[in-house]
Simulated scan of single mutants.
Amino acid sequence: MSDRSQLEKVEDIEIRLLLEALFLKYHYDFRNYAMASIKRRLRQARQQLGIATFSALQDRLLHDPDMLPRLLGYLTIQVSEMFRDPSYFKAIREQVVPHLRTYPSLKVWIAGCSEGEELYSLVILFREEGLEDRTIFYATDINHQALEAAEAGVYPLDRIQLFTENHRKSGGRSSLSDYYQAAYGRARFDASLRRNVVFSDHSLVSDAVFGEMNLISCRNVMIYFDRKLQDRAIGLFGDSLSRKGFLGIGSKETLRFSSHSAAFVDFVREEKIYQRRSNDGG
Rank of each mutant, 00 (worst) to 15 (best):
A146R: 05
K272H: 14
K244A: 13
L72A: 11
Q48Y: 04
K9C: 08
I110N: 03
I15E: 03
R159N: 06
D266N: 15
D141P: 02
E132I: 03
M213G: 01
R93E: 01
L72W: 10
M222R: 05
F257G: 15
G73N: 04
Y224N: 09
Y26F: 14
A21H: 09
S261L: 04
R70A: 07
S80M: 09
N214A: 03
I234R: 02
R256D: 13
N214L: 02
L49G: 00
P86V: 00
Y103V: 03
S242V: 08
L71V: 08
Q48N: 12
H144A: 15
D3S: 10
S203K: 06
P104A: 06
E94Y: 08
P98G: 07
I234T: 03
D59W: 00
A262H: 13
K9V: 07
V154I: 15
K9P: 00
D266W: 13
G130T: 04
L215M: 11
D239W: 01
I13H: 10
Q275I: 13
S114N: 09
S203A: 08
K272D: 00
Q275R: 15
L255M: 13
L17C: 12
N279V: 01
L215Y: 11
R70F: 01
E148G: 10
A152R: 14
S251W: 09
I234L: 12
L62T: 04
F189I: 06
I13L: 14
S261N: 14
K107Y: 06
Q145V: 13
L61P: 12
L157T: 09
K9F: 08
I142R: 00
F163W: 09
D133P: 03
L122K: 05
I77H: 05
L215A: 07
F189P: 02
S200M: 14
Q78D: 05
S87R: 10
T135W: 01
L72N: 10
R101F: 06
A56M: 11
D226L: 07
S242G: 07
S217V: 15
M222L: 14
L131Y: 03
S217L: 15
L106F: 09
C218I: 13
R60N: 12
P98M: 08
E11N: 08
S80E: 12
A91M: 07
Q181G: 06
D231R: 09
E128G: 09
G116D: 04
F54P: 00
R269W: 10
H167S: 12
S258E: 11
S87K: 08
T135C: 06
S175N: 03
R194S: 07
I223S: 10
A187D: 11
V221C: 05
T53C: 11
L204D: 04
F225T: 11
E270A: 10
A146Q: 05
S206L: 06
R93Q: 11
